[in-house]
Design a protein around this nucleic acid. Structure first.
Lengths: 323, 323
DNA sequence: TTGCTTCGCTTAATCGTTAAAGCAAGCGGT
DNA sequence: ACCGCTTGCTTTAACGATTAAGCGAAGCAA
């Protein structure tokens, strides 16, 4: 490995001068600085991150803690965060929390122990990450007071609900995955709030909720809103099993715009997060905090986007359906 | 931050002694070593990774380059690699290659520039990562000569093909995503090789292949094998659109055992990778190479596992189907 | 000429950890 | 009593980069 000293000896100057020339900080003559940069270039000099980290106390690495990665949205988040961080010269060290809350704390501690400059956390549903000795940015949802950046999950819920209401739906079944998840609760709260006063929406959870769907439709529901595309796929399977057509008999919506949303038939009307913008906010906020800037404390909320596909249409006209 | 020196001064010994005591390497009396460890413990001493990295030339960090993370399998791989690496005291720095081959090289260079001790690469389909100044382990498929660890994709293909053949299927349509992917080619090669001599299998690719499915079934195909669960879902949509029932009229198989495999109806017969074992091999091999051990060059192949669900059954008896 | 600045570079200290080498004390053998 | 060996600790010098401080030389003013 070629160090600053090699370049220095090579050009007969001191190591300090090389450092100054490369960083452009000290007082080095134009000519010499240019020679040094050229020499560094063709010697293939790469500064030692370890040495720099030791001296400056900054590793240039951010930690990222995510819950179990079974949710296909997280990887997209990770990828985008990595890309954005990279454009600022930062690296992303991942630690998975294996879905358990205690592992989340453990993962955080491991990251901090590795000398990261800050941590980004997408908390496990229903958990609150404990404070850390380095800046921490939580990406969750608006109703979580600790959350610094989030998609506007409630707004997203409002978008689908508004869309269905505009199509004429009034009796709507809502399917959530897990009531412990603030994200899902916000999505559902947004849905409910956006429905007109004469609408009737009831929420069911998980497999039990899905199993009850046919009955709900028989009772007059003309649309089903879910809090994730995977739930929508499950719901769709159940509806078909009951002989119900989407969107002919029932409209159906998902959340997250996963790849499966277009692979399904009918393709799924869903809501997409602006992952890029969220990542940018998160990185921006954490770099500001690391730099010790005041850092506006106000959490930022990024709007979601409705994607209308084939799974939603006007309500069926015949109120009764025969399974 | 409390350093080795604080502990040293605190106990009136030299820094070297503390280092020796904590690492258990030098000659330190039992009693003193115990006192030092206790003091370190309650002072909350955390060794500086930067300093250690500088001194030893090892950062304890591995780089991980993956293609676009839209494939839901990669995050699982990343998570498992992170877990396994962690158990060896290593961290994982991710860099996504944004799906482009040149970005893959760029990502590798960035990681190396960050001082990682080695890199793990799941190459973008059809690409060969260029050699790096640090140990590199490629996770791909057996037919790639550069691949060090891989799932036995051909074997997995053989499993599904054997399963269908055993059920009695002889005319089978195969759907691949992209012929440029070695993984998918191996999967298909394995399928074809495992079919009995009297069987007839033809491969179609991507959307065009899927669009032709109904025709293939009308021509006598009784089963469809795909190289991914997402393709299977697409194929299922197309088959249903043509009025064909799975598995009544046609059997259907996927690959990878994604969450959607159980969300579909019928649930999908598919093949799962042993991600954990692959990750363990990869980490084991790269640590060996980093340690400078001879490192057996033989690539390792990890068996896959067939998961039989509802989407496969015996072939239909009436040869002709009416769309 | 003296005094003051600015320029351009060097010296040296430092970050926290490691490890080779050194050194005093104690012990056993002859 | 003397030599050599082990034990238990210290001294010292790195690793590579950064940066405050120092120091000649040159430039300018008086």
């Amino acid at each position: 490995m070629v160090s600053i000293k090699h370049i220095a000896k090579d050009l007969g100057v001191s190591a300090a001068t090389v450092s100054y020339a490369l960083s452009g900080k000290g007082r080095v003559s134009r000519a010499l600085a240019e020679r040094i940069r050229a020499r560094a270039e063709d010697l293939g000099y790469r500064p030692s991150v370890a040495a720099r980290a030791l001296k400056t106390g900054r590793s240039g690495i951010l930690g990222l803690v995510m819950p179990d990665l079974t949710n296909p949205l997280f990887p997209r988040m990770a990828q985008t965060l990595a890309t954005v961080a990279d454009s600022r010269g930062l690296g992303i060290l991942i630690a998975d929390s294996r879905g358990r809350a205690d592992e989340q704390s453990e993962a955080l501690r491991r990251l901090v122990g590795r000398g990261v400059d800050g941590v980004l956390v997408i908390p496990r549903k229903g958990s609150v990450p404990e404070p850390q000795p380095v800046p921490m940015i939580v990406i969750n949802t608006a109703s979580d007071p600790g959350s610094a950046v989030s998609a506007d999950h409630a707004g997203g819920g409002a978008l689908v609900a508004g869309h269905l209401a505009a199509l004429g739906h009034r009796r709507i079944a809502i399917i959530g995955g897990d009531p412990v998840s603030e994200v899902q609760r916000d999505r559902i709260a947004g849905m409910v709030a956006a429905l007109p006063p004469d609408a009737d929406a009831q929420t069911g959870w998980g497999d039990a909720g899905i199993a009850a769907l046919a009955e709900r439709v028989a009772a007059g529901a003309t649309a089903v809103m879910t809090t994730s595309d995977l739930l929508a796929l499950r719901a769709h399977s159940e509806l078909r099993r009951a002989g119900l057509n989407v969107p002919g008999d029932v409209s159906l919506t998902g959340f997250d715009d996963l790849p499966l949303a277009t692979a399904m038939h009918p393709s799924l009307t869903t809501v997409a997060q602006d992952v890029r913008t969220i990542a940018e906010h998160a990185i921006e906020m954490i770099t500001a905090r690391i730099a010790g800037e005041p850092g506006e404390d106000c959490p930022r909320t990024v709007p979601m986007r409705l994607i209308c596909r084939e799974s939603t249409s006007t309500p069926r006209t015949n109120k009764e359906v025969q399974p």
